[in-house]
Each structure stands twice: as structure tokens, then as C-alpha cells.
Measured scan of single mutants.
Amino acid sequence: TYYTVKSGDTANKIAAQYGVSVANLRSWNGISGDLIFVGQKLIVKKG
């Protein structure tokens, strides 16, 4: 599943929404920190 980042989103918020850990969200998308951008497409695997 892909999720498009919206204004006000955070890695924590997206992870919680899908029931996954922030560490997994980072791993699936090659993100090292919490910096995400509006319009960015993230791979999300439901927990």
C-alpha cells in the first residue's frame, strides 16, 4: 500500500494510523530520520 504524505502528517502519525512501528515505516522507505515531505509517497504495510 502507498500513502501520500499530507500537510501536518508525521512519521509517528502515519505509523499509528496503519498500526505499524515508525522503525518499520522508515525501513520500508529508506528514511533515516523523521523528515518526510508533503506529496511524498510512502510504502506502508498494514500491521
Results as ranks from 00 to 15, higher is better:
Lys45Val: 11
Thr4Asp: 05
Val44Asp: 01
Gln17Trp: 13
Thr4Leu: 09
Ile31Met: 12
Lys6Thr: 08
Lys13Val: 08
Ile43Ser: 04
Ile43Met: 10
Leu35Cys: 13
Asn24Gln: 15
Asp34Met: 08
Val44Glu: 01
Thr4Lys: 07
Lys45Asn: 12
Ser32Thr: 14
Gln40Gly: 03
Trp28Pro: 01
Val5Leu: 01
Asn24Met: 14
Ser32Gln: 14
Ala23Trp: 07
Lys46Trp: 15
Gly19Thr: 05
Leu35Ser: 13
Asp34Thr: 08
Leu25His: 00
Gly19Tyr: 06
Val20Lys: 00
Ile31Val: 07
Leu42Glu: 00
Gly39Gln: 02
Tyr2Cys: 13
Val38Arg: 05
Gly19Glu: 08
Leu25Tyr: 00
Lys13Tyr: 09
Ser32Cys: 12
Lys45His: 12
Asn29Asp: 01
Lys46Ser: 11
Leu42Arg: 00
Thr10Glu: 05
Ala15Pro: 00
Arg26Asn: 08
Thr4Arg: 07
Ile14Gln: 01
Tyr2His: 08
Ala11Arg: 02
Leu42Tyr: 01
Lys41Asn: 09
Val38Lys: 06
Gln17Val: 11
Ile31Phe: 14
Leu25Asp: 00
Trp28Phe: 04
Lys45Ser: 14
Ala23Thr: 10
Trp28Asp: 03
Asn24Glu: 15
Gly19Val: 04
Gly8Asp: 06
Gly30Asn: 15
Gly8Met: 05
Ala16Lys: 12
Thr10Ile: 04
Tyr2Ile: 11
Tyr18Ser: 05
Tyr2Val: 09
Ile14Cys: 01
Ile14Asn: 00
Ile31Gly: 05
Arg26Tyr: 14
Gly39Thr: 04
Gln40Tyr: 04
Gln17Tyr: 13
Asp34Leu: 08
Ala16Met: 12
Ala16Pro: 02
Ser21Val: 04
Ala11Tyr: 15
Thr10His: 04
Tyr2Gln: 06
Val20Gln: 04
Thr4Met: 09
Lys6Met: 10
Thr10Gly: 03
Lys46Leu: 15
Val44Cys: 03
Thr1Gln: 12
Gly8Trp: 05
Thr10Asp: 08
Asp34Glu: 10
Leu35Val: 12
Asn12Lys: 14
Gly39Tyr: 04
Gly33Lys: 07
Ala15Arg: 02
Lys13Glu: 10
Asn12Arg: 14
Gly39Val: 03
Val20Cys: 10
Val5Pro: 02
Gly39Pro: 00
Val20Tyr: 02
Val38Glu: 10
Val22Met: 10
Val22Gly: 04
Gly47Gln: 13
Val5His: 02
Tyr2Lys: 05
Asp34Gln: 08
Lys41Cys: 14
Ile31Gln: 04
Thr4Glu: 09
Trp28Leu: 05
Ser27Arg: 13
Tyr18Gln: 06
Lys13Cys: 11
Gln40Asn: 05
Lys46Tyr: 13
Tyr3Arg: 01
Val5Asp: 01
Gly8Ser: 06
Ser7Glu: 15
Gln40Thr: 07
Val44Met: 05
Ala11Lys: 03
Thr1Asp: 11
Gly33Val: 09
Phe37Ser: 09
Asn24Phe: 08
Lys45Glu: 10
Leu42Ser: 01
Leu25Lys: 00
Gln17Leu: 14
Leu25Glu: 00
Trp28Tyr: 04
Ala16Gly: 08
Asn24Leu: 14
Lys46Gly: 12
Lys6Glu: 08
Gly33Pro: 07
Asn24Trp: 09
Ile31Ala: 05
Val5Asn: 01
Ser32Asn: 12
Asn29Cys: 02
Phe37Leu: 09
Gly8Phe: 05
Asp9Arg: 00
Gln40Lys: 05
Lys46Val: 14
Lys6Ile: 09
Asn12Ile: 15
Asp9His: 02
Ala15Asp: 00
Asp34His: 08
Ala16Asn: 10
Val44Lys: 00
Lys6Arg: 11
Val5Cys: 06
Ser21Trp: 04
Lys45Asp: 10
Tyr18Ile: 07
Ser32Asp: 14
Gly39Ala: 03
Arg26Pro: 00
Phe37Pro: 08
Ile43Asp: 02
Lys41Phe: 07
Ala15Leu: 03
Lys13His: 09
Thr10Ser: 08
Tyr3Gly: 01
Gly30Ile: 06
Tyr18Glu: 06
Ser27Val: 12
Gly30His: 11
Ala11Asp: 06
Tyr2Ser: 06
Thr1Trp: 14
Thr4Ser: 07
Tyr18Gly: 02
Tyr18Phe: 15
Val5Gln: 00
Val38Pro: 12
Gly19Arg: 08
Ala11Gln: 11
Lys46Cys: 14
Ser21Leu: 07
Asp9Pro: 01
Ala23Arg: 08
Val38Leu: 08
Arg26Lys: 13
Gly8Cys: 05
Val20Thr: 08
Lys41Trp: 07
Tyr2Asp: 04
Tyr3Ser: 00
Lys6Gln: 13
Gly47Thr: 12
Asn29Trp: 04
Val22Leu: 13
Leu42Cys: 02
Trp28Ala: 03
Gly30Thr: 07
Trp28Val: 03
Ala23Lys: 09
Lys45Cys: 12
Ser27Glu: 15
Ser7Gln: 14
Ala16Glu: 13
Ala23Glu: 15
Thr10Val: 04
Ala23Phe: 07
Val20Pro: 00
Tyr3Ala: 03
Gly39Ile: 04
Leu25Ser: 00
Lys13Thr: 14
Gly8Pro: 02
Ile36Ala: 03
Val22Gln: 05
Ile43Pro: 00
Leu25Thr: 00
Phe37His: 10
Gly19Met: 08
Gly30Glu: 10
Val5Ala: 07
Ala23His: 10
Ala16Phe: 10
Leu25Ala: 00
Gln40Trp: 05
Ile36Leu: 14
Val5Gly: 03
Val20Ala: 04
Val38Phe: 05
Lys41Gly: 05
Ser7Ala: 15
Asp9Met: 02
Gln40Ile: 06
Gly33Asp: 12
Asp9Gly: 00
Asn24His: 10
Leu42Val: 06
Tyr3Glu: 01
Ser21Pro: 08
Val22Glu: 09
Thr10Trp: 03
Val20Arg: 00
Arg26Val: 12
Ala15Val: 02
Tyr2Pro: 04
Lys45Arg: 13
Ala23Asp: 13
Lys13Gln: 11
Lys45Phe: 14
Val22Thr: 07
Leu25Arg: 00
Val5Thr: 05
Leu25Ile: 09
Asp34Phe: 08
Asn24Lys: 10
Gly39Trp: 06
Gly30Ala: 10
Gly33Ser: 09
Gly8Asn: 06
Leu35Thr: 13
Thr1Gly: 10
Val5Phe: 05
Thr4Pro: 01
Ile43Glu: 04
Lys45Thr: 11
Ala23Met: 08
Gly19Ala: 08
Tyr3Asp: 00
Asn29Ser: 03
Tyr3Asn: 01
Val38Gly: 03
Leu35Phe: 13
Ile43Asn: 04
Gly19Phe: 07
Ala11Ser: 07
Ile31Asp: 04
Gln17Asp: 10
Lys6Cys: 09
Gly19Ile: 04
Ile43Leu: 15
Trp28Ile: 04
Gly47Tyr: 12
Val44Ser: 01
Asn12Leu: 15
Ala15Met: 03
Ala11Val: 15
